[in-house]
Design a protein around this nucleic acid. Structure first.
Lengths: 241, 241
DNA sequence: ATAGCTCATTATGAATACAATAAGGCGAGC
DNA sequence: GCTCGCCTTATTGTATTCATAATGAGCTAT
């Protein structure tokens, strides 16, 4: 954590070397947006661990900007729940209690259940096929026990289901929840058989989707998410949870 | 809308007359927070109609503050969906399309269904009784056809159910959704028999809760919310929805 | 020696100043 | 007469400066 050069964007005191000043690469085009994305990455990736204090000036220096856009970025991150702001006391990466985590995982499970239920009834034929293919492509990943690749695949799978609900408000809600929980899912597939188990559960869910039973798919999805969270909880005993 | 003195806080160019400088009365204690609350009120109450452009400087003047806290407030409002920010183009009160509204109402309905389902299994005896009493107290309001009072009661009823889920993440989510939809619910109880119908639906939901059938309560709640949104939609034909 | 108070320091909250972009108007050319 | 382009202007984005509150250290008194 001492080496926080990870997201150095504009190097301070260096003339523009022709590279696009990140604002473009960031997102909409504003510095604040770019900083928000950068900080969110650092938090979700674990580079900034939960509970870490965030110094506005330090962040500003790191990103080669002033405090103003940094503050805006931090407020937005607070709104999404990734950081916590105590007025006049500073900002820190959200450190959730075990209870908070449980509540969030429950909401996540119910939300995903809702997504798959709606998706069962609303996905187009193309979407259905795409989801099947996505699932099939993960088989060799499971075989190789490639955790990183499977993690990426898992994200894609669930995201496809969000989209399948054909409700963008729901997609945003589910995506936001996933982002918020990201810092706490680092050990998600650590267990020996977790990849295999996750894959099987996906298969069962997919099966119900193809049979058109959204309720059953929802129940399976809820169980799938709660299983994952329970497995995860085993690795969260030590922290000040 | 020309008379926007509604939320005048610090009158500009008037020496502090001993009154607490609103920062205290606002919320946490910062000006930005107070402005956020003030603007949110104006938006949800309809004083600032959907689609209205918001000028940072004008808001700053109105609240007797500088642009800095106003910008922070606006960013937070954007995060909650009440306003939309187009970089370099300005801020305007969120103007949702009919499709957006439909998606939000669906999410709201499903969220409320989830709340009542969980609440059915988790409310304490005290909470159960309180909810019953709250419902009973609304009977005379319905009798008098007192729309404003019933609106307040309705909020309390639903909020109590959120809390009954005993999941604060879910409470926040549901509350946020309700806030976001508030600007579009102004004509909610305009129909002749709407109060009576709403009351009956509440009664049916409560009945299932007391019988311990969370699933049934959830189905009724979903229908209740969708009925309300459908009724509401009748009044949203004219606007640029 | 310890507890409480005061003062200095530092970081956040807010205001002001500066820069850059987008929009609108005016003029010129086709 | 219409359209395209430049220029002006106003508003947003960013930086800098100022104010204020919280924190910690050091001192004093009990």
């Amino acid at each position: 954590m001492t080496d926080t050069t990870t997201a150095g964007l504009r190097k301070p005191d260096s003339e523009d070397d022709g590279m696009s000043p990140i604002a473009r690469s960031g997102a909409g085009g504003t510095l604040a947006e770019a900083i928000r994305v950068g900080l969110a990455d650092e938090i979700t990736s674990g580079a900034l661990a939960p509970g870490t204090e965030i110094d506005e000036q330090a962040v500003a220096g790191r990103f080669g900007a002033s405090r103003t856009p940094v503050r805006e970025a931090l407020r937005q991150l607070a709104a999404s729940g990734l950081v916590v702001i105590e007025p006049r006391r500073g900002v820190r990466v959200a450190a959730l209690t075990a209870n908070d985590l449980g509540e969030l995982f429950e909401l996540m499970a119910e939300t995903e259940a809702l997504c798959i239920r709606l998706a069962t009834y609303r996905m187009t034929a193309v979407e259905r096929v795409a989801l099947q293919m996505l699932h099939r492509q993960s088989a060799p990943i499971v075989g190789r026990n490639d955790v990183d690749r499977y993690d990426q695949h898992n994200r894609d799978f669930h995201t496809s289901i969000y989209r399948g609900s054909h409700n963008s408000a729901l997609v945003d809600h589910a995506t936001g929840l996933r982002l918020r929980l990201a810092p706490f899912r680092r050990a998600q597939f650590r267990g020996e058989q977790r990849l295999q188990q996750s894959h099987s559960e996906h298969e069962a869910i997919l099966s119900q989707v193809l049979q058109g039973d959204g309720e059953a798919a929802g129940r399976l999805m809820r169980a799938h998410m709660l299983t994952a969270s329970a497995t995860l909880a085993e690795y969260l005993v030590a922290p000040r949870g």
